[in-house]
Design a protein around this nucleic acid. Structure first.
Lengths: 102, 102
DNA sequence: CGCATCGGTTCGTGATAACTTACCGTTAGT
DNA sequence: ACTAACGGTAAGTTATCACGAACCGATGCG
């Protein structure tokens, strides 16, 4: 995440990235590899250096996945609440709630 | 995440949760503790059982944090692109780009 | 009261994730 | 062509994580 956030500032080389982080360059390289594999970053060769930058497409894609998860969670939860309150209302007129009260 | 998703279906006890998962009850308890600490779930004592459910507030809060991150990433990236293209445009009329071309 | 069930916590252990060191290929500059 | 800088990769080590086993307190029930 630290790397991800640094990349927000624009294209940056591996070395420069490592200098600002509490880890060595190879470690940064490995993280970049992962980020690249999941499509969050792209790299452009530039002479002996290699500039990394965010991939807006990948970021948007991942954001979509998360949004989907949150929405599903909140929606499903809301449904379950309504179902539960309906059950409770019915219980008031009958004998007992599904979950005994404390 | 598996636990989180199970909780979407509504309040559920630890035992029941563990029965549907490939891990033991203590493991589930530990995960629930973490989820509770970050405010994603709440628990209600119910006799000898303890029902866990999602905390919509916490979910919304975390979703907000993520949204903020994505937005910041995309926005900052866009800015950096514009800045860069401006620099490149200037370079065309002057001498060289900031990053030498391949 | 016992007794059983439920669930949280602690501790030890095995898996694995992250890091460093060392090495190698590539490129730019002289 | 030689040298220096950059960066990716492999191997080994360390730290961290997730888990299960065992233990304990609390609650409900007979």
């Amino acid at each position: 995440m630290a790397i991800f956030q640094k990349l927000c500032a624009g294209p940056i080389a591996v070395n420069e990235l490592a200098r600002t982080l509490p880890v060595t360059r190879p470690a940064v390289s490995q993280h970049l590899k992962v980020l690249k594999d999941v499509g969050l970053v792209t790299d452009i060769k530039n002479g002996t250096r290699r500039l990394y930058q965010l991939d807006p497409e990948g970021v948007a894609r991942l954001r979509g996945h998360f949004d989907q998860m949150w929405t599903k969670a909140l929606g499903a939860f809301q449904e379950s609440v309504e179902k539960e309150s309906a059950a409770n209302h019915h219980a008031k007129t009958s004998r007992r709630t599904r979950f005994k009260s404390v």
